[in-house]
């Protein structure tokens, strides 16, 4: 506890390029970029696979494989092969991690929509694309958001590990603290990252309340989470 007080009351930790605000911003910048990229890849792909049924096997296999991949190893390997310098090498493993949960949940969400509902939409004269966007997506939204949330939390956590290969962000406190046996910094960094993860979780819960149609809310099946 003393370590925490020492870390959070040290004025050096609140200003300058290694201050908490700057590190937090770096962390968010990275995580947001990786998450945005992943959403742009995974959501359209998941919608397409869920709607057409093509490539379903690929989706399931990729999700399982992603769960087995050790993040630290992937990160270290890609950065070692591509060099530090730019941010791209670090973004690749983050995106590789974030895509599968979003992809699977989007796919499962679309595929899990009741057939009666789909048939009714067609019966009302909607075309394929309209059925997807006006009926399937709103109904599947809770699951899609769950996938994005799981991905976001993983990205925030892994961006911490990325400090090991020279990335900024909150992980710096942990990695530098470990290297120099500065435990107040290490523990302080760990607490900050944990708080950030909880904030992300909370943000997605609130987002879900705002964007999910009240009509489908009871259908939220938390347990279906593929993360």
């Amino acid at each position: 506890m003393n370590w925490l007080i020492e870390f959070f009351t040290d004025p050096a930790n609140w200003s300058g390029s290694s201050g908490i605000p700057v590190r937090l911003l770096e962390h968010l910048e990275f995580s947001a970029a990786a998450l945005l990229l992943s959403v742009l890849i995974a959501v359209p792909l998941g919608l397409w696979v869920g709607h057409t049924g093509k490539g379903a096997l690929f989706v399931v296999v990729s999700a399982n494989a992603a769960r087995a991949l050790p993040t630290l190893g992937l990160l270290v390997l890609i950065v070692l092969l591509m060099g530090v310098g730019t941010t791209l090498p670090v973004l690749i493993p983050l995106v590789a991690l974030a895509v599968p949960p979003i992809l699977v949940n989007t796919y499962e969400g679309i595929r899990g929509v009741e057939h009666d509902l789909r048939d009714a939409a067609y019966g009302m004269g909607l075309r394929g694309g309209q059925v997807l966007l006006r009926v399937l997506v709103p109904v599947a939204l809770p699951l899609i958001l769950l996938g994005v949330r799981v991905a976001a939390i993983q990205v925030v956590a892994t961006a911490t590990v990325a400090a090991y290969v020279g990335l900024g962000g909150l992980g710096r406190y942990i990695i530098d603290g470990l290297a120099t046996k500065d435990f107040p910094s290490t523990i302080g960094g760990a607490v900050l990252v944990a708080l950030l993860a909880l904030a992300v979780q909370l943000m997605f819960t609130l987002l879900g309340r705002m964007v999910v149609s009240p009509g489908v809310r009871p259908a939220v099946r938390e347990r279906l989470k593929a993360g």
Partner: peptide, 22 residues
């Protein structure tokens, strides 16, 4: 129970390892 577990699940593993070191 599930609420508590969801919170625990969202904590980054590295952070939890570190906090447990002492």
């Amino acid at each position: 129970t599930v609420g508590v577990m969801n919170v625990v699940y969202s904590l980054p593993s590295l952070a939890v390892f570190i906090v447990l070191i002492p």
